[in-house]
Design a protein around this nucleic acid. Structure first.
Length: 460
DNA sequence: CAGCAGGGGGCGC
DNA sequence: CGCCCCCTGCTGT
């Protein structure tokens, strides 16, 4: 604090440290997160600001994705690496086993993480001597600088005015790899009330240009594309120009499966699903994510059909379950969560809350995602919500709710279900089979529940 | 009230 | 892990 001309300069001694700490804390609490990274089925709510600061790749991506809360699916990165990289970005440090180093570096290169894969621009004060590949577990610790700086940059930037890391050479903005423009735009038509439409973007994949939706030009151009295959799902803010915004529009593919498809085979049952679609139609996105994660097998399917445009609301759905719900469990009050939480009106959500919540035993208290926890017995905790179960299998099925995975396809229509049993119930619609007959009347039902419900009428 | 979809748990292999 | 059941929610008539 010096004074000159009567002006006092007040400095916050622990400003950097405090900011770094706050950032980490915010991430732990998933507070103010505005982007979700997904890899190997795990979701990491983080901050664009941090990602952008630490990676030009992300910076470019966000530059081209105006969505409020995009979901970036990273297909070729292991969750362990992702966690390590996030730790690196947020804390400036990461410990890695020597054996995992190569893989981590690879991941860092794909994502163009500064300080790890990309030389960090020498900050004002320090030279980047070890930048090239500064790490080894030991290095990391010893050289937190790169990151530190990074973080510093961003923090100081606000106060000093130096701006965030300028994206120097924008590699080709991979992010927008549009899917072929094909005909997805109709998707927009769906629900407006939702704040966003999901946007599904395939990030360029240098290696495998074959991606279904990649736009030709993008592919061609990107060599630098860091991420091999990733999907970026963005939530599009409704009403806003998001989608239409620059090129986005075109590349955005609205979940083709959307509407009818995911919900149930479009045509025949379409009539009953309209509203679902309108309200929020989580499926499409979910599936998209799943496919993205799991592999395109399914994706092609729906993309191919493309007939339904539903848009994606999956993100919404996702965010809801994933981000929103999780938080509550971990931190407490839902109210504090960020803006985009939806009203979980969806049958799904609500149901989940009720039933899922009941059984929860071990919840993350620290706000971090827990994969499994051991108490007296092993509790399998859903990473996306508060649901937990002692049965691994149960969790597997449950997770499909979040991922939208629907492995079972109806041979008679486009309907797909997440469980075989649900599918068998559905198939009866086509076969006309009604195995559950009422002993008091000729009534026959296709589902046991229907019969039970029917029996009630005899009681009254 | 019927029909349908979906989630979670129980049980057996 | 697969199969099945129970239960619930939503929608249409």
């Amino acid at each position: 604090m010096m004074a000159s001309d009567g002006m006092l300069s007040l400095s916050w001694n622990n400003h950097k440290a405090t900011f770094c700490h706050i950032l980490s804390t915010l991430r732990e609490k998933e507070r103010y997160t505005d982007v979700t990274l997904a890899c190997e089925g795990k979701f990491y709510p983080v901050h664009k600001l941090v990602l952008s600061t630490c990676s030009e790749y992300f910076e470019k991506m966000f530059e081209h994705t105006p969505c409020k809360h995009p979901v970036v699916v990273l297909k070729d990165i292991k969750c362990a690496d992702m966690e390590a990289l996030l730790s690196y970005m947020y804390d400036g440090v990461v410990s890695v086993l020597q054996q995992d180093l190569a893989r981590l570096i690879k991941a860092a290169e794909l994502l163009q993480i500064k300080g790890l894969a990309v030389p960090d621009e020498p900050p004002l004060k320090e030279l980047s001597k070890k930048n090239a590949y500064p790490w080894s577990s030991r290095d990391d610790r010893s050289s937190p600088h790169p990151k530190r700086r990074r973080r510093e940059d961003m923090m100081t930037s606000t106060s000093q005015g130096s701006s965030l890391p300028p994206p120097e050479s924008p590699p080709s903005s991979p992010q927008h790899h549009q899917e072929s423009n094909q005909s997805w735009d109709h998707s927009k038509s769906h629900s407006q009330d939702q704040r966003e439409d999901g946007v599904d973007q395939r990030v360029g994949d240098p290696v495998e240009p074959a991606v279904e939706f990649s736009s030709p030009k993008q592919e061609a151009s990107h060599n630098q594309e860091p991420v091999d295959e990733s999907l970026v799902k963005e939530e599009v803010i409704e009403g806003s120009e998001d989608n239409q915004g620059e090129g986005m529009d075109s590349r955005i593919e609205y979940g083709g499966m959307g509407g009818g498809d995911s919900n149930t085979g479009g045509e025949e049952q379409g009539s009953k699903f309209p509203h679902q679609l309108d309200t929020k139609h989580p499926q499409p996105l979910h599936e998209a994510v799943v496919e993205a994660l799991a592999g395109p097998s399914g994706m092609q399917g729906w993309l191919g059909t493309g007939e339904l445009g539903g848009g994606f609301s999956m993100l919404e759905g996702y965010s809801e379950d994933g981000n929103q719900e999780v938080h509550p469990a971990s931190t407490g009050p839902h109210g504090t969560q960020q803006s985009h939480q939806m009203v979980g009106l969806n049958g799904d959500g609500s149901r989940n809350m009720k039933r899922g919540a009941v059984g929860k035993v071990a919840l993350n208290k620290d706000g971090t995602r827990i994969r499994g926890r051991e108490a007296v017995v092993t509790i399998h905790q859903c990473p996306f919500c508060s649901y937990s179960t002692v049965r691994k299998h149960g969790l597997t099925k449950h997770i499909r709710r979040h991922t939208g995975e629907k492995p079972f396809t109806c041979p008679h229509c486009p309907y797909r279900s997440s469980t075989k049993y649900a599918m068998s119930n559905h198939v009866r619609i086509h076969t006309g089979e009604k195995p559950y007959s009422c002993t008091l009347c000729p009534y026959r039902g296709a589902q046991r529940a229907a019969l039970i419900n029917h029996l009630l009428t005899h009681k009254s």
